[in-house]
């Protein structure tokens, strides 16, 4: 649901902002945004209303999250491999009763 489009605020006039969506300028209402915006801010828009100011550092945070997820997956595979190796070593060293 909900087509949300990020855009950059060009100017603010009370409850109405001019927002640039990668080359398309459109009026966007600010009635329900969670914090004040000013020109240069990025906002998420839905049906003509800005619903969120997107702080630039959180774009970086998203990217960092991807790295973390990749790292987690890798990490656990390595852990599994290591465990597998340990198990194998045990098995070859002494058998079940050792």
């Amino acid at each position: 649901m909900c087509l949300g489009v990020p855009g950059r605020v060009l100017e603010v006039n009370g409850q109405i902002a001019q927002v640039d969506f990668f080359g398309v300028r459109r009026e966007t209402r600010l009635d329900i945004i969670d914090e004040p915006v000013q020109p240069g801010d990025y906002v998420l828009n839905h049906v003509g209303f800005a619903i969120r100011r997107i702080p630039p550092h959180e774009i970086e945070e998203t990217l960092a999250l991807y790295e973390l997820l990749l790292h987690e997956a890798e990490h656990d595979i390595m852990a599994a491999d290591v465990r597998g190796e340990i198990d194998a070593t045990r098995a070859s060293a002494g058998g079940p009763d050792a």
């Binding site: 945004i33 969670d34 619903i51 997107i54 945070e61 998203t62 997820l69």
Partner: peptide, 14 residues
């Protein structure tokens, strides 16, 4: 996993 738009509290004004 969408921290650039979503917070725990959400958009209170909305």
């Amino acid at each position: 996993t969408f921290p650039r738009c979503v917070t725990r509290e959400g958009n209170r004004i909305a």
